[in-house]
Computed example of a mutant assay.
Amino acid sequence: MFQPQNLLQAFDRVTDYWSPKVVGRVNDQLLKVAKLKGHLVWHAHDTEDELFYVVKGCMRIELEQQVVELKEGDF
């Protein structure tokens, strides 16, 4: 059964950096929220995608061909 979730309230369950919490599911993919700080080492997932949505702060993603700067509200 579908239960509405509040994304901002989901962050209340995240107390540590780099400790993602599952807050939902979309088809066969998990929806996770996390608090990030510092650098994330480049990595890839062969069978899934990642979406980064910035709630607070900013994020810099260095891709192979470009650099993307995300600000609050960007994904």
Rank of each mutant, 00 (worst) to 15 (best):
T47K: 15
V26I: 14
K21I: 12
E69K: 13
T47D: 15
H43Y: 02
E69G: 04
G73T: 03
G57I: 00
V68P: 01
M59W: 04
R13W: 00
Q65V: 05
I61G: 00
D46G: 14
V22S: 11
S19V: 00
K32V: 01
V26E: 14
F11A: 04
K71Y: 12
H39E: 15
A34Y: 01
V68A: 09
D28F: 10
G73S: 07
Q29G: 07
D12A: 10
R25N: 09
Q3Y: 09
V23Q: 00
T47Q: 15
D74P: 00
E69M: 15
K35I: 08
I61F: 01
V55E: 04
V22T: 14
A34K: 07
D12I: 02
L7C: 04
L31Y: 05
G57W: 04
Q9M: 09
C58I: 02
V41R: 15
D49I: 01
W18K: 05
K35T: 12
V23G: 02
Y53Q: 08
N27F: 11
R25W: 12
M59H: 03
K71L: 11
T15K: 15
V54D: 01
E64S: 13
V33I: 06
T47G: 11
G24M: 07
W42T: 07
K21M: 09
E69D: 14
W42D: 12
H43L: 03
N27V: 07
H45D: 00
D74N: 08
L40W: 05
G38F: 00
L40A: 09
A44H: 14
V55N: 03
D49H: 10
W42F: 12
I61T: 02
